[in-house]
């Protein structure tokens, strides 16, 4: 992390990016605390329910961001495949998905 803050449209937020500042609505009520990791569902709800368009996120450099994305892919596949640890076919599928998603994360 660089310590800098970047304002991003919600559609551009990469899952796992962290909110850099507390987020308030127009009435001044706290919506979300700084430091919260944003995911797709949170972004969608911020947009649809709270009318938020842009959010301040913690800026990270490209290498760190790539590493974080890869780690996020591995974590989410670990969770998704938690019931299939001993299935050869599902382990094969998991490896295929991991490679694909890591490639896509590289952009």
């Amino acid at each position: 992390m660089t310590g800098a803050v970047v304002y991003k449209p919600l559609a551009m937020v990469v899952p796992g990016e962290r909110l850099a500042k507390d987020l308030f609505d127009e009435q001044g009520s706290l919506l979300m605390n700084a430091g919260v990791a944003l995911d797709e569902r949170t972004c969608r709800r911020l947009q649809q329910v709270c009318g938020v368009k842009c959010v301040p996120v913690e800026a990270v450099d490209a290498a760190v961001r790539l590493q974080a994305r890869r780690a996020a892919v591995d974590r989410s596949l670990e969770h998704l495949f938690r019931h299939w640890r001993y299935s050869q076919a599902m382990n094969h599928l998991r490896a295929l998905l991991a490679n694909h998603r890591r490639e896509m994360a590289r952009g």
């Binding site: 989410s76 596949l77 969770h79 998704l80 019931h83 299939w84 599902m90 998905l97």
Partner: peptide, 19 residues
């Protein structure tokens, strides 16, 4: 199964059925 593996959208849970 593949779309669940990509986590594209949400079918209602966070598991993956047997392929």
């Amino acid at each position: 199964v593949l779309a669940r593996g990509l986590e594209f959208g949400n079918p209602g849970d966070d598991t993956i059925p047997m392929l």
